[in-house]
Write a protein that binds this DNA or RNA. Sequence first.
DNA 1: GAAATTCTGGAACGATCAGTCAATATCCCT
DNA 2: AGGGATATTGACTGATCGTTCCAGAATTTC
Lengths: 188, 188
Amino acid sequence: MARPKEFDKDAALDAATRVFREQGFAGSSAADLTRAMGIGRQSLYDTFGDKAALYRAALARYTALETEAHLAALSTGPRAIDGLEILLARVRAKAGEPCLAVGAVCEFGRSRPELAEVQAAGERALAGALAARVREAQDEGDVAEGLDVGEAAAFLTAAIPGIRIAARGGAGAAQLQALAELTLRALR
Amino acid sequence: MARPKEFDKDAALDAATRVFREQGFAGSSAADLTRAMGIGRQSLYDTFGDKAALYRAALARYTALETEAHLAALSTGPRAIDGLEILLARVRAKAGEPCLAVGAVCEFGRSRPELAEVQAAGERALAGALAARVREAQDEGDVAEGLDVGEAAAFLTAAIPGIRIAARGGAGAAQLQALAELTLRALR
DNA sequence: GAAATTCTGGAACGATCAGTCAATATCCCT
DNA sequence: AGGGATATTGACTGATCGTTCCAGAATTTC
């Protein structure tokens, strides 16, 4: 029986995620990562394999947690449109922080299959939940009847990085709120 | 009087831009850049100063050219709404290619003042032209009267990276078209 | 020819890179 | 206590990084 690990793997992964969000993959060194994670260099490699595998693990965890939070926001409120509004409010509230998912698309596009599959899974989950919520909102009269729910879901999905990039480019809270309102206006 | 430069500075800058668009700043080495630009190492430094200054010059040129093309698209067509549609069609058509402006925001946010000022100038020019066009479209009855033209312009500005990131994440032409249509629907 | 700058690519510099190495430590089992 | 398997650490490794230096040759005007 071997020595158990001293550090909490998920806590270390979350620390690495913070570095990757700020600096991207190419801009984050192993020294940056081990420092933030509070572990030795060999521990990083023993546990995660290499820097690219660490990035993938960070992206997978980030995507899962972010999707979970999005879905929770979507499920809030008495009417489906409330869920959509609360989702966009959450996006606005956190828009000033760098987003690992957006960063990964910018840095890699779809050139890395092992990342693309993580990204696609997150998108599918969100799109499915958004489509369901849009359909409910149509039934409740808050979203126009004739709209394709898949397209509306894709539109809402695309609005999220739009808002995030606007914030990262300097847009203030009032402007982000206007973006969210116009986004929902498109569905009315 | 000294020997004149042999290479075309703008052509070299465009070649560097292509590298930066694909690989970002941190991911592009001086060797990658000199190879693509077709010039010697010392010529790069003599002409552009250093890698960061080259990136700034590339971003400034890219932003100016892209803004110019956006403004030309906006000016096309008999009605103002046509200009908006043509702008979004142009964005869709080129959305699969990495965008240096979006990449710069992702990689640096506003942490580099010398880049932030380039980005802000481009955004101001586009926002001004968009606002003017939205106001015209209101007068022509194609955009709702009650909308704030500044907010509508910001919304259209945010839709551009939204579309670009959707494309870079794998969205097809039909989905991008739906995004553009819903974007304009928000203004009706 | 002289002066000022340009061109090249290799060499050099100090720094940093991702990953490996070597020694020591920790756990359970016999 | 010793063995086996794994964990821990920071130093080490060979490669690459951005930038400067170098030397020789080239280009322009005076």
